[in-house]
Simulated assay, not measured.
Amino acid sequence: MAVASTSGCASLRKYRVVPESVAKCRKLSREGVAAMERGNCQQARTLLDRAVEISPTDIDARRQYAEVLWNENAKWEAAEQMEAAVRLDPHHGPTVVRSGEMLLDSGSPDRALERASQAIALDSTLAGAWALRGRVYRQLEKPNQALADMQLALRYGPHATDVLLDISELQYEMGRPHRALTTLHHVLDSYAVGEEPRRALWLEGLAYSSVERPVDAIASLRAANGRGEPNADLMFQIAKAEAAAGRPTDAAATVQQALAINGEHEPSRVFLAQLQAQMMGDVTLRR
């Protein structure tokens, strides 16, 4: 009987009864995640809000709720929920990193820096932690420190195209367009033809312009233009490349497209006036 009693206690410990509130929370969380995957963000928000209300100490529910809020552009609410998840489990590096990412994108770089340092202290091989700190330093206008951290992020996560793209942007901003192009080509090679991200193609065009390869710049910028909504800044850069390639008429037409997108785009207005003066001068000279 003693043996049977001991065995029974072990079985009870193995199949521990979950409190009703926890079970309900988990059910609502699963339903919320499913709703989010279907694209029904409002239903997901309602379900996960209820899950957190029922079981405030459930870490997964907090994290999932934060992501739903983030997708709905409720950034500060999302950051607060992820911060609550960190307080519940301060030793989970990925949660600490995600909290820092939300804080940074919500306009709180100092707090994001604290989270990045916390995550690095927890796990110095966590690529996301180094990438976060690099992005914080970049926002704080410390490019050398930012680049060093980004390179460490790449060491621990060598296939992270977003980090490669951040590095290429830093290199361009630091006046190293040739290095930026080399890094960018690694990024672009990882995508199928026609699926390259606009951000990478746009930067490639700017870098080509900086190294005086305007024809290549036009091709990259035109490709970027086909990846999203019309953008006056992008059209302006195409016009500048066309002018540098000796195509003032094309440049004038392109910059007029930029002004059609945004009539108040001052760089385009100034550049159009310069192009028109140049073309009028050329006509006068030919006469």
Rank of each mutant, 00 (worst) to 15 (best):
A180P: 09
S268R: 04
T46M: 14
A127S: 14
E264S: 14
A252V: 00
Q43A: 09
D49K: 12
V187M: 01
R138P: 01
Q64A: 06
A61N: 11
M82T: 01
G246L: 06
M174A: 12
E53H: 15
V97T: 05
I238N: 04
A66L: 10
S190C: 08
A224C: 02
S209W: 04
A79P: 01
R38H: 05
S209Q: 06
R38Q: 07
E72Y: 02
V86N: 10
D105F: 12
L12H: 08
A241Q: 08
E195F: 08
Q42C: 01
R115F: 11
D250S: 13
A74L: 08
V283Q: 06
G32V: 01
T284D: 15
R227S: 07
E173T: 05
R87E: 09
D110N: 13
G281N: 11
R62G: 11
A131S: 09
A244M: 09
A200H: 14
F271E: 04
M1N: 07
R213K: 15
H265K: 01
R286H: 03
L164N: 05
A239G: 08
E67R: 08
Q81N: 08
E264K: 14
H91Y: 03
G228E: 08
N144Y: 12
M174E: 07
E195Y: 15
T57N: 12
A129Q: 05
S190W: 06
G32M: 04
T182R: 15
I167Y: 04
A239L: 08
P56D: 03
L132I: 01
Q274L: 04
N231S: 05
E72T: 05
I167R: 15
E266G: 03
E196P: 13
V215H: 15
G107Y: 14
T95G: 15
A224N: 03
T183C: 11
Q145K: 14
V187I: 08
G205M: 05
R199V: 01
R63P: 02
M174D: 03
A232H: 14
Y156D: 10
R45V: 00
P214D: 06
R287N: 08
E31G: 01
K14F: 10
V52E: 12
D49Q: 10
V3P: 07
A232W: 12
L259V: 04
A84K: 05
I54W: 15
A258E: 07
Y172Q: 04
R98W: 15
R133D: 09
E264C: 11
H186K: 10
V17N: 15
A116M: 06
R198L: 02
P214K: 05
P90C: 11
R98G: 05
A84L: 02
S29Q: 14
R62I: 00
G175N: 12
K14M: 03
T95I: 14
S55C: 15
L103P: 06
H185Y: 12
V33A: 13
D166V: 00
E53I: 00
E80G: 13
L170G: 13
T284I: 04
G8W: 13
Y137W: 10
P90K: 03
R98P: 03
A129P: 08
E141C: 13
E229G: 11
E204I: 00
A245M: 04
S124G: 03
E196N: 10
L221W: 09
R133L: 04
N262H: 13
R98I: 00
E229V: 02
A192R: 11
W76L: 14
S268V: 00
Q139M: 12
H92V: 01
K14W: 08
G100W: 13
V22M: 15
R115K: 14
R269M: 14
R176D: 11
P267T: 01
C25R: 09
L103D: 02
